[in-house]
Nucleic acid binder design. Structure first.
Lengths: 226, 226
DNA sequence: CTTCCTTTCAAACACCTGTTTGACACCACG
DNA sequence: CGTGGTGTCAAACAGGTGTTTGAAAGGAAG
């Protein structure tokens, strides 16, 4: 039921009431128990039915090849679109955001089905950009730094709106946001990669004098993981 | 009441029940209505009483001077500590995170009282790092990119734990996370700043060629002076 | 038409929510 | 001792929750 997905999306599983859903849908309260076996069954059905849009986006994302930077940009754009989308096609993203704060049993299924594959795709692109001098744990942290910028605009939307009332946060803002996030992230990854390689080259000479030229921030990262 | 703050923090205002709070606190259900005038009054009291710890952190943050990079690092560390802290001193951070997803009337007060001052502090540091070639809107976006990385570990904790079960996300991880976030952010800001300045210098000559400009820019940053 | 099955509906059920009520105990103060 | 105020308590209240129930309606097959 589309209206059920809508209600679940912006009220959460717990706060949503089947009476409200049924009133909006023009049906009876008992029908959901008859067809889905209860509120939990309805929610399950909504969650896995809403995966269509998400999967379609994921497919479009998986098909995008090319340089790592372009794949990263595609990832950010797709993810951002999903997160900022409006209307009925956005329910899955909204439910996913809800699940992160108020996890139900559906979150495990969501993580394994949608989030993990995309996380690995992102990890590949990031690893390609920074090069081979970074451990898996470091790349993992960097991936989260990239993904964080996207989900921020979903999770902190109420704060952003209060902080900057003139800041438009709709689907039209996707491109400018994607541009900012991608530019910042690519610059960050490239900068870290370059700092790491210079630090490695300087290691053979004994005193890392050149590394001291870099600011303490980059230097500590370079030798932080012993 | 401390236990009330605890319950509100990890259940949210709506899901928390005063019966649960009172049972844990060993007091009677009617006492909260007698002393606070109701559930909303209790919540208000909890919210503004919890500000002590947050304010103390903010004071420590405001006192930190020095280079913009160090101030940014201090911001990330303080913010991350607040967000990942455990025990009773973390309730304010957790309630704030809750408010972002499920806003109540307390969010406006929280934003004006705590978030906005720190956002301006962050904005100053970021603007100092990237230099004067960036508009206020661009700096605003970059600030959100930095802050996003911090709140990510709070808001997406359930997902992170499912994605990487071995990833420890406690107060001991603060330093590692702060290091990664600061390094990534500073590298990103410096890279963008360098790319912007080279693009400005090249503007007189004709075709800018942005993609070609970013890579050398990042490399140059890694070598030191800008 | 009868029969059977599926679906819908209003009502009721049992439970939980925040709040109110009235009685009870405590205790400083006159 | 008496008295008034203060804080606490169990009980009850009114409203909302998910779920169940039993009756009624629709329709296809015999």
């Amino acid at each position: 039921m589309r209206v059920a997905a809508e209600v679940f999306a912006d009220q959460g599983y717990r706060s949503a009431t089947i009476r409200d859903i049924c009133r909006r849908a023009g049906t009876n309260v008992a029908s959901v128990n008859y067809h889905f076996g209860g509120k939990a069954g309805l929610y399950r059905a909504v969650v896995q039915s809403g995966g269509a849009f998400t999967s379609e986006m994921a497919g479009r994302l998986a098909a995008s090849g090319g340089a790592a930077e372009d794949r990263l940009r595609a990832y950010v754009e797709v993810f951002l679109t999903r997160v900022l989308a409006e209307g009925p096609c956005a329910v899955h993203g909204r439910i996913m955001a809800r699940e992160m704060i108020e996890p139900t049993e559906a979150l495990d299924q969501l993580v394994d089905g949608f989030i993990r594959p995309e996380a690995e795709m992102l990890s590949l692109a990031v690893g390609e950009i920074v090069g081979k001098d970074f451990t898996r744990e470091e790349i993992r942290l960097l991936c989260m730094s990239v993904a964080a910028q996207v989900v921020f605009y979903k999770h902190c939307r109420p704060v952003v709106e209060r902080l900057f009332p003139d800041f438009r946060l709709d689907s039209a803002a996707v491109s400018v946001l994607a541009e900012s996030i991608t530019g910042f992230s690519v610059a960050g990854l490239r900068g870290l990669s370059a700092a790491r390689s210079t630090a490695r080259e300087a290691k053979g000479k004994g005193t890392p004098g050149t590394a001291a030229a870099t600011r303490p921030a980059a230097r500590r990262i370079a030798k932080g993981r012993n």
